[in-house]
Amino acid sequence: MLEVAGLTVSYGPIEAVREISLRVTEGTVVSLVGPNGAGKSTTLNALSGVVPAARGRILFQGRDITHLSPHQRVSQGIVQIPEGRLVLAGMTVRENLEMGAYRRPASEFKAGIAAVEARFPILAERRNALAGTLSGGEQQMLAIARGLMARPKLLLLDEPSLGLAPLLVKTIFDIVGELRSGGQTILLVEQNARQALLVSSHAYVMENGKIVLEGPAQQLMSDPAVISTYLGQALDAPASVA
């Protein structure tokens, strides 16, 4: 579905992402893990068109989208749920969801709202609240729900668990798991590599703007180098994969 070849992104003289190539197959969850500052978010932003690609090509469903503007990419079905959620704080929960469906025909709206409110009952309850008054976890739910309102073909999920309490982190990853079961294609960026690998079928490891490792998630999880560098002690009990 998505094919990135030799993508380089520069901020002035600094190359934040260097010559990376990756592929996301339809219906799978692929994760992009690595330390802070490795270029993961920059990669997603280049896929969304928020930052320009200096070199390389991005193919989506066989079409070259390297030079499309961000809103055109949303129309194509590439939807990012950004790090830090970026809910529209001064607008209501309902209006945030409406904005999620900005590029969708109005006829879909009712069904879309019903679907996300069924999945996230808290958003139905707080429909008329200003998004800025929601808790961090609720805002993350809203950000995900808003992203789903766009009916993404490819969902780019940037650090969905960042800054959330452990219980909420679990909730968020449960949601990712549910989306995967529903056939949603996802490219997931996470610092929480262990959790990310658990929900993914394939993964790429980034460091200093480059992809240094890639493979099936299962395989990476059992790679001693990955364990010692990215998973630490957390994978002592791999049997707890649930």
């Binding site: 969304s48 928020v50 503007s69 961000p70 809103h71 949303v74 129309s75 939807v79 990012q80 950004p82 970026l86 809910v87 529209l88 704080a89 001064g90 607008m91 209006e95 409406e98 904005m99 999620g100 900005y102 590029r103 808003r146 766009a150």
Partner: peptide
């Protein structure tokens, strides 16, 4: 209106609006 809401979205956060598909 749809455009009115997009104007408010851009006022709140250009980046968020852009990621939602608004032609900023």
């Amino acid at each position: 209106t749809r455009i009115g809401k997009a104007i408010r979205a851009v006022a709140e956060s250009e980046r968020a609006a852009m990621l939602l598909g608004v032609n900023v």
